[in-house]
């Protein structure tokens, strides 16, 4: 076997030919300059790439810093700042940009009924130094075992901006909540407010549009669409009549001023009068006594006989 190995070895090792191209590579490499050049070229390439990356990073950092400066100083962004520095003209900031400057946006004084005994008004959004404060008024009409509430604020992409517990003091019935948060940007047209009970059950989800100031209670649209106003009016007429009608001759005329829904509970603001059913064409408008009340009720679409159930009838001031 050794003989075969020797024979193969001699056969193979006779051949020392390498291609001219490979020979050229060796020759180039052997010349001192080229060793340097080859190495330096490779180093230079890496160095150049690193240099470019460093320059890009510096520019990005500068632009980022300038953008923060520009936005906090009312220029909107860095490009408007540059424009201001060059031309001296300050660019008018749009509504969207205003969200980042000092503002006090009145949202709504319309109450939202979380339960028949608990109302809420989402009143203001104050923005100062990129910090936002949402001011909410809470009114507890009677004792309720679900307060103090917990609040969670989210932006339009469902990112949590803050979680906060109620500031309610022990015996307070009417109080203001100030929910402080940051992280809101000019791209956030809405903020979402999740309200939780003291035992952390979700009570309501409310979307506040910061541009239109519209407040959308989660599920309200669908809840309102599924009830029939005719049937509701009939139901409320029967309920109010049975409670307030003084004689069989009286006939109720009822007007639904407003109807809203939150957290499974409907609220209807109603005006009503009782008229004499024998003289419906001779109404004494001067002496007509219009009453107002708020009805809290639930709706059960699967129960055909008792679709609505009154939770509470609350008398308002008589007009």
């Amino acid at each position: 076997m050794d003989k075969i190995d020797k024979k193969i070895k001699s056969l193979i090792q006779q051949d020392e030919v390498i291609s001219p191209k490979a020979e050229e590579i060796f020759n180039n490499f052997f010349s001192e300059n080229n060793i340097e050049k080859n190495t330096i070229n490779k180093h230079n390439r890496v160095y150049k790439i690193r240099k470019i990356i460093a320059i890009i990073t510096c520019i990005a950092g500068l632009l980022g810093g300038a953008n923060v400066y520009a936005s906090t100083n009312g220029y909107g962004n860095v490009f408007f700042l540059i424009k201001y520095l060059v031309t001296g003209e300050k660019t008018e900031i749009t509504n969207k940009n205003e969200l980042l400057s000092d503002r006090d946006i009145t949202i709504s004084y319309k109450p939202i009924s979380l339960t028949e005994n608990l109302e809420m008004q989402i009143r203001n959004l104050q923005i100062k130094d990129n910090k936002a404060t949402l001011i909410i008024a809470v009114n507890e009409k009677n004792n309720t075992n679900i307060t103090p509430l917990n609040y969670k604020l989210l932006n339009s992409t469902e990112k949590t901006l803050c979680e906060q517990k109620s500031s309610k003091k022990a015996l307070e019935k009417e109080y203001l909540e100030e929910i402080v948060f940051n992280g809101i940007t000019k791209d956030d047209e809405v903020v979402k407010l999740d309200i939780y009970t003291s035992y952390n059950t979700n009570l309501a989800k409310i979307t506040i549009n910061l541009t239109t100031k519209e407040i959308i209670v989660d599920g309200e649209k669908q809840a309102l669409e599924q009830i029939s106003e005719i049937e509701l009016k009939q139901f409320l007429s029967d309920k109010i009549s049975s409670k307030y009608k003084k004689s069989q001759k009286e006939k109720i005329v009822l007007n639904l001023r407003d109807i809203s829904y939150c957290a499974g509970l409907y609220k209807a603001d109603i005006n009503y009068v009782f008229i004499d059913s024998d003289n419906t064409f001779e109404i004494d408008y001067d002496n007509l006594k219009v009453s107002a009340l708020t009805a809290y009720f639930t709706f059960n679409k699967n129960n055909l006989t008792d679709m609505f159930s009154i939770v509470k009838l609350e008398e308002n001031n008589t007009e």
Binding site: K21, I25, F26, F29, N38, T39, K42
Partner: peptide
């Protein structure tokens, strides 16, 4: 392949 070998050689030398 001669061309590929030359590439490999170049890298190896460096």
């Amino acid at each position: 392949n001669n061309d590929d070998v030359c590439d490999a050689l170049q890298e190896t030398l460096i």
